[in-house]
Computed example of a mutant assay.
Amino acid sequence: MYLSLLPQFIDPAHGSVLGQSLALGMTQIVISLAVNALIVLMAGSIASFLELRPMWITVQRWLKGMVLAALAVRVATEARR
């Protein structure tokens, strides 16, 4: 990804190409790390919430089942067209 995406943002007139590449790469890594850490923390919070409320797990299972059933019906009806 770095070889295909970052070169379009590098301008040799603004200094060292290596320095710019490292700065852009590190910026992307720091942002990705922060976003992934936030996702992990939110997933842990949601898991704790669901663990304390078994009714939500039941509702979630029913919703997943209905969505999968609706997708199965849609696939079955599209195959006939």
Results as ranks from 00 to 15, higher is better:
57 I>F: 10
42 M>R: 13
39 I>F: 07
54 P>L: 09
20 Q>P: 05
10 I>E: 03
27 T>G: 10
40 V>Y: 10
2 Y>A: 14
54 P>M: 05
63 L>Y: 05
55 M>P: 00
70 A>C: 07
13 A>Y: 03
35 V>Q: 02
42 M>E: 04
28 Q>Y: 13
45 S>P: 00
51 E>D: 09
9 F>Q: 14
40 V>W: 14
68 L>H: 09
41 L>M: 08
14 H>E: 13
41 L>R: 11
69 A>Q: 07
29 I>Q: 07
72 A>Q: 07
62 W>R: 09
2 Y>V: 14
12 P>R: 08
26 M>K: 11
1 M>V: 09
19 G>F: 04
67 V>K: 10
1 M>K: 14
51 E>I: 03
78 E>P: 01
35 V>D: 00
4 S>G: 06
75 V>H: 05
18 L>W: 12
45 S>W: 13
53 R>I: 08
50 L>G: 03
63 L>R: 07
22 L>T: 15
29 I>V: 15
10 I>A: 05
62 W>V: 06
57 I>N: 09
13 A>W: 08
8 Q>T: 12
25 G>H: 12
79 A>R: 14
68 L>F: 13
17 V>C: 12
55 M>W: 11
24 L>N: 01
6 L>H: 09
49 F>L: 10
40 V>H: 06
54 P>Q: 05
60 Q>W: 03
33 L>I: 06
